Simulated scan of single mutants.
Amino acid sequence: MSIGATFVYAGIDVTTTALFSGVRGAQLAARASLVECGAFPARLGTREPFGELIAGVEAALDLRAHRAGTLPRHAAHLHQRTAGRIGSLTRLIRRAAITAILDGTERLTKTSLDQVRLNHLTETHHRPTASRAHTPKR
């Protein structure tokens, strides 16, 4: 019996590890294709992949008072705020949505999103604008 399978190995900075060294490493290196993942692009030609991603995430929200199209309008700000990281974006929206449910507003706004603290990478990457510099983060 045979089973078709695709093996996916995930890791950080794998080319600097022993993964591809030695006899077994050489076999793996000959069969593997590296896919490097970085920040999700804000623009790609005429498309706006990050805005499309935001629209998809927004479509999955089930908040009573939230207006569709609110989040994609802030795509540039959200890309800058999250350093283009998909995980940071979904974490931001999830935390803001939970807060909106708990406080009864049931909607997301740029202000409510900006009140969410994120991971160290995005917080150090994101620099508040002059108009927000005086607003303390929670």
Rank of each mutant, 00 (worst) to 15 (best):
S2L: 15
S2G: 10
I3K: 15
G4M: 08
G4E: 15
T6I: 14
F7Q: 02
Y9T: 00
Y9G: 11
Y9V: 11
G11M: 05
I12Q: 15
V14N: 09
A18K: 13
A18N: 09
F20C: 12
S21M: 04
G22A: 05
A26P: 01
A29C: 08
A30F: 11
A30S: 14
R31H: 14
R31K: 10
E36V: 05
C37E: 06
G38C: 10
A39M: 05
A39H: 06
A42Y: 08
R47M: 08
E48T: 06
P49C: 08
F50T: 02
G51A: 15
E52K: 03
A55M: 01
G56F: 03
G56N: 12
V57C: 01
V57N: 00
A59Y: 09
L61A: 04
L63V: 01
L63W: 08
R64A: 13
A65F: 14
R67N: 12
T70G: 00
T70M: 00
L71Y: 03
L71F: 01
R73L: 11
H74E: 11
A75V: 06
H77E: 04
H77M: 08
H77T: 01
H77L: 14
R81H: 07
A83Y: 10
A83E: 01
I86K: 04
S88W: 00
L89H: 00
T90W: 02
T90H: 05
T90S: 09
L92F: 08
R94H: 13
R95G: 07
A96E: 08
A97F: 03
A97R: 01
I98T: 10
A100K: 02
L102V: 09
D103V: 07
D103G: 07
G104F: 03
T105A: 15
L108E: 01
T109Y: 06
K110A: 15
K110Q: 14
D114R: 12
N119W: 04
T122C: 14
T122G: 01
H125L: 03
H126G: 06
P128G: 08
T129I: 13
H134E: 07
H134T: 09
T135P: 00
K137W: 10
R138Y: 01
R138M: 07
